[in-house]
Each structure stands twice: as structure tokens, then as C-alpha cells.
């Protein structure tokens, strides 16, 4: 009399996560919103404004996916995650996509059961330090106390860099970005280390941003991008091609303003992109006008970059590596055809 109950319970456990993993698009549509993992507040990448609206480069990826699926960029449920908890949230199915300035590494790609879908931002690790300490180079940091957020690639990079240069250091790792910043501000550490884009973003949060300086050394490669779970190739394609669509739109000169005009263009590549020719959108499991929806909602990659982290934002980071491949950078998307 007890056995069937256990069998059902065990079967539910056994089948549960598998069923959820296979049909993310269907699940998202049924739920009526995309569940998107973001940071707990990193200006430029993902941060809520004073009205609770999330903005940022990583947020725009979530909104672009929602636009492609629902034709409504507001149908996103943002789940703020610490660096430590982000992968578990994705593995367990709590979120559909993780768009949280996450570095693409081999071990993460292979052992966590996730797939990186592309690179939204080519970053590198650096050091933020008080101007009053008169340090001009990371090579002068021997013996320094360093604050870092735990669960990042930054912890190992510091170890590699300092040991490689025969320098000593004290690494103090905190659970969240805010705790790390507070400890740095209180003087517990001489140096705050993170990806350089984050250092600029965090410097804005400090009481006197002008008293702190980012050292010139870049000690690692940090390609940041969105991730999805293993086991659902259709969803993997949708997330991957959402970013590619934004980059291709910039390359072809499609902007938030001119997207309606461009959609009427007779140029073959634009006709393919906007669904006037072929059924590329349907092949992805989306609609014909998927690219138009994305660009209308968040603009092309360059517009999103400028608005959130680039010249049009408080951070004022130059495009650098993140410029398009044909303008001196390395942002490059496979063609939509």
C-alpha cells in the first residue's frame, strides 16, 4: 500500500528535471515571462533603477530574448544572483538563461552542465586602488591586501599573477559584491580586484570616485557572455542568435530608429534578416520578424553598448575590443542566412 506512493515520488524525482530541460521555449511561453539570472546590482551591466526597472548590457540580452519570444521586452522576471549561486540557479532550472557578466572558461563550459552562447563583452581583470597610496603599476602591489568577490575567476587569476611575479598578497573573499566594496571602502584592503568593466562600474558607487584609480595592467582574459543549460539545443540557438542578431544589426546599420524603414529594404541580406525572404525565424522556433522585434526593443549591439556602458553612459568605457571586427575590434557574428 505504501509502495506505489514511493514509486510515484521517485519517478517524479527521476523525470522532473529532464522534462524541464528539454523544452525551455515551451516552458517560457507557458509561464508568460522569461526568467533571467542577472547580477545583484552592477551599473552598466545589470542594475535596477530607482523605479525598479532593470537596465544594463546584460539586461538588454534578457529583454532582447523576451522581445524575440513575446514581442514584449518587459516580459522578463529578473533573478538577482551572487557570483557563487549563479550556476546552481541555472542548473536547477530556476532561471532560463544566465546573463550575469560571466567569464567563459573551459572548465565552466564542460563541468557545470552549461553552454556559453557567445561573448557580449570582452573584458580583462584589473585592480582598483586608492590614489593616496601612490601606486602606478600592479607590479608594485607586493604584500598588499586584496578584496575579491568569491565564486569568480578573479580569485585564481590573482594567485597566478602574484605567484608569477614572486609577490606576496593577502586575499580576502566576500560573498557578495556589495560586501566586497564595503570592505574595500573601509580600508580593510588596499586593492579591489575584478573585471575592469566592473571596476569602472564600482568606482561610481564609491563615496569619492575621484580618489580611486584603475591600474593599467590587465592580468587576464575575461570574455563575458550569457549561458544556458545543457540539453536543449533549440533554446541554446535562440539565446545565441539573439546576440548575433544584435551584432549583425549594427554591422548592417540597422538601428532602433530606422528598423521599420530597413525592414522594407530590398537588399538581400536585409530581406533575409527581416523575414521578407526565407523562414529563418521559424527555423529558430521564433517568428519571421524576430530581428525587428529585438532591435525595436533594445537597439543593435552598438546602441546597447553606448547606452549602458559606453559613451552615452556614466561609465564612459570606450568600445576597444568590443568594437565590430570591421572597425578595429573583435566583435563578430556569423551571418544570418
Amino acid at each position: 500500500m505504501m509502495k506505489p506512493v514511493f514509486v510515484v515520488a521517485a519517478a517524479a524525482v527521476a523525470l522532473g528535471s529532464q522534462a524541464a530541460a528539454a523544452q525551455t521555449l515551451k516552458t517560457v511561453k507557458e509561464r508568460g515571462a522569461l526568467s533571467c539570472g542577472v547580477s545583484q546590482g552592477l551599473p552598466g551591466f545589470s542594475t535596477p533603477d530607482d523605479k525598479g526597472n532593470w537596465t544594463g548590457l546584460d539586461v538588454d540580452i534578457c529583454r532582447a530574448i523576451a522581445a524575440a519570444v513575446f514581442n514584449d521586452p518587459t516580459k522578463v522576471k529578473f533573478v538577482p544572483l551572487s557570483a557563487k549561486d549563479r550556476f546552481t540557479a541555472l542548473q536547477s532550472g530556476e532561471i532560463d538563461v544566465l546573463s550575469r557578466n560571466t567569464t567563459w572558461t573551459l572548465s565552466r563550459d564542460t563541468s557545470l552542465g552549461v553552454n556559453f552562447t557567445g561573448v557580449t563583452y570582452y573584458d580583462g581583470q584589473g585592480f582598483l586602488i586608492r590614489k593616496s597610496l601612490n601606486v602606478n603599476s600592479a607590479l608594485e602591489l607586493n604584500g598588499a591586501s586584496i578584496c575579491v568577490q568569491t565564486g569568480t575567476t578573479n580569485e585564481q587569476n590573482v594567485s597566478d599573477y602574484f605567484n608569477g611575479n614572486q609577490m606576496k598578497y593577502e586575499l580576502i573573499a566576500f560573498g557578495t559584491a556589495d560586501e566586497t566594496i564595503k570592505a574595500y571602502e573601509s580600508g580593510r584592503c588596499d586593492v579591489f580586484t575584478s573585471d575592469i568593466s566592473q571596476l569602472y562600474s564600482i568606482r561610481l558607487k564609491l563615496a569619492a570616485p575621484g580618489d580611486h584609480v584603475v591600474l593599467p595592467e590587465v592580468i587576464s582574459k575575461e570574455p563575458l557572455g550569457p549561458l544556458v543549460r545543457h540539453g536543449d539545443d533549440q533554446w541554446f540557438d535562440i539565446v545565441k542568435w539573439t546576440l548575433f542578431a544584435m551584432i549583425n544589426a549594427e554591422e548592417l546599420g540597422v538601428t532602433q530608429k530606422n528598423v521599420d524603414d530597413m525592414a522594407k529594404s530590398t537588399k538581400p541580406d536585409l530581406k533575409r534578416m527581416f523575414g521578407a525572404d526565407g523562414n529563418l525565424g521559424e527555423q529558430l522556433g521564433l517568428t519571421k520578424d524576430w530581428v525587428a522585434r529585438i532591435v525595436k526593443a533594445v537597439g543593435n549591439y552598438g546602441e546597447s553598448f553606448d547606452r549602458n556602458v559606453g559613451a552615452g553612459s556614466k561609465l564612459g568605457i570606450s568600445r576597444g575590443l568590443n568594437q565590430l571586427w570591421n572597425k578595429g575590434g573583435i566583435q563578430y557574428a556569423p551571418p544570418i542566412r
Binding site: A83, Q91, G151, T176
Partner: peptide, 24 residues
């Protein structure tokens, strides 16, 4: 302890080690 960066078991093992290896 993880909130203030004291390297206790939860912080260095169930925190850093977990996120580096992913073997939750």
C-alpha cells in the same frame, strides 16, 4: 562568516571551491 570574508568551512569550501569546481 562568508559575509565578512572570514575563511571558514562554508566560505572556502562550500563557497569558493564549489563555484570553482561546480560540484554542488
Amino acid at each position: 562568516a562568508v559575509a565578512i570574508g572570514y575563511p571558514d568551512l562554508f566560505s572556502v569550501f562550500a563557497g569558493t571551491t564549489l563555484s570553482q569546481t561546480g560540484q554542488a
